Simulated scan of single mutants.
Amino acid sequence: MNRPTRLVSTALAASAALLLTACGSGGGDDSSSDKIEGAGDGGSKASASASAKPGGTERPEIKLPAEFRANFAGWTNSDPKLQAVLDDGKEELRAKYAAIIEADPNSKAVAFYDAGSSLSTARKWIKGFVETDDSLIGEIKVYDPKVNVSGKDAAVFFYCVDERESSTKNRRTKKVTATPDTPESVLQYRARLTKSEQGVWQTVSLETVPGGCK
C-alpha cells in the first residue's frame, strides 16, 4: 500500500472477457437472467476463523491480527447458493491478507481458495510484500458484494474494497506508510469462480479496477 494500487498490483489483473462471458450466463440453475444479484442489506464483520464445513468440506482456519481489520458489510444473502459464494469469496480475500502479514507466499489457505492463474498471481502479489519486508495494519472495508451463479459450478463475483484506512508497516524499520486518501484507493474487484469437486468456490481469475467504486 505504498502507493494507491499496492494492494492490487497488476499481478492480480485477469481477463475481463472471461468475466463478461460469465456475467451473461444467468443467475442460477433455473434462471435466465444475466443480472448480478446483490448480497443483501445486512452487515457483518469478518469472522475470526473459517472452520465451518459447508457441503461437508472443512475450511482452513484464517486469523488476522488485531492491528489489521478486514470489515465486511452486507455480506449476507437469503439464497444459500449465493451465500456459499460470498462465504468462500470472503475467505479468499482474508487468506491473502493473512499470507501477507505472515510473509507466506505459499500459504495453504490461499491455495485452498485460489486455483489456476489466480493462485500463481496471488502468490506473486504476496511475494512482493515479502521482498520489501512489509506487513499490513489498519482497516480494509469490503462492501457492496454482487454475485451471479451460472449452472452448478460457475459464478461471477463483484465487490468493493476501500483501502484508505490501511497502511503498510515495515517489519525491520517499523516505518508506516499510509495508503493515499484518493478515489483510486477504493477499488472494485471482479472475480470469476468455479466450484471444486470438494464443493469449494475457488477464485480462478481476478480483475481489479482502481477507483471503480464510489
Rank of each mutant, 00 (worst) to 15 (best):
R3W: 13
R3C: 12
R3T: 11
R6G: 11
L7W: 09
L7K: 02
V8G: 07
V8R: 14
T10G: 13
L12I: 04
A14E: 10
S15L: 10
L19K: 10
G26Q: 01
G27M: 13
G28A: 13
D29Q: 15
D34F: 13
D34E: 10
K35Q: 15
K35A: 15
I36T: 14
G38K: 09
G40D: 06
D41M: 11
D41Y: 10
D41T: 11
A46M: 07
A48S: 12
A50P: 04
S51D: 06
K53Q: 10
G55Y: 02
G56N: 04
T57D: 08
P60A: 06
P60I: 04
E61P: 06
E61K: 15
K63E: 12
P65I: 09
P65A: 02
E67K: 13
E67C: 08
R69A: 14
N71F: 10
W75Y: 13
T76P: 01
N77L: 05
S78Q: 08
D79A: 08
D79Y: 06
K81W: 07
A84M: 01
G89M: 05
K90I: 06
E91A: 14
E92H: 10
A95T: 00
A99M: 03
I100A: 00
E102C: 04
K108E: 11
K108Y: 03
A109E: 07
A111T: 05
A115P: 00
A115M: 04
G116E: 13
G116F: 04
S117Y: 06
S118W: 00
T121M: 07
A122H: 03
W125E: 14
W125Y: 11
G128P: 01
G128Y: 01
F129R: 05
F129M: 04
V130A: 12
S135M: 04
L136M: 04
G138L: 00
V142P: 02
Y143N: 06
K146D: 03
K146P: 02
N148L: 15
G151N: 03
D153N: 15
D153M: 04
A154R: 15
A155E: 01
A155R: 05
F158W: 12
Y159M: 05
D162A: 04
E165M: 13
E165R: 14
S167L: 03
T173A: 09
K174A: 14
K174V: 03
K174Q: 13
K174P: 01
T177M: 10
A178V: 09
A178E: 09
A178W: 03
T179P: 02
P180M: 04
D181H: 09
T182Y: 07
P183H: 05
P183S: 05
P183Q: 03
E184Q: 15
A191K: 09
R192E: 08
L193Q: 13
K195D: 01
S196W: 02
E197C: 03
E197K: 15
Q198S: 15
G199A: 03
V200H: 06
W201L: 08
T203G: 09
V204K: 02
S205V: 10
S205T: 14
L206G: 02
L206D: 01
P210Y: 09
C213T: 01
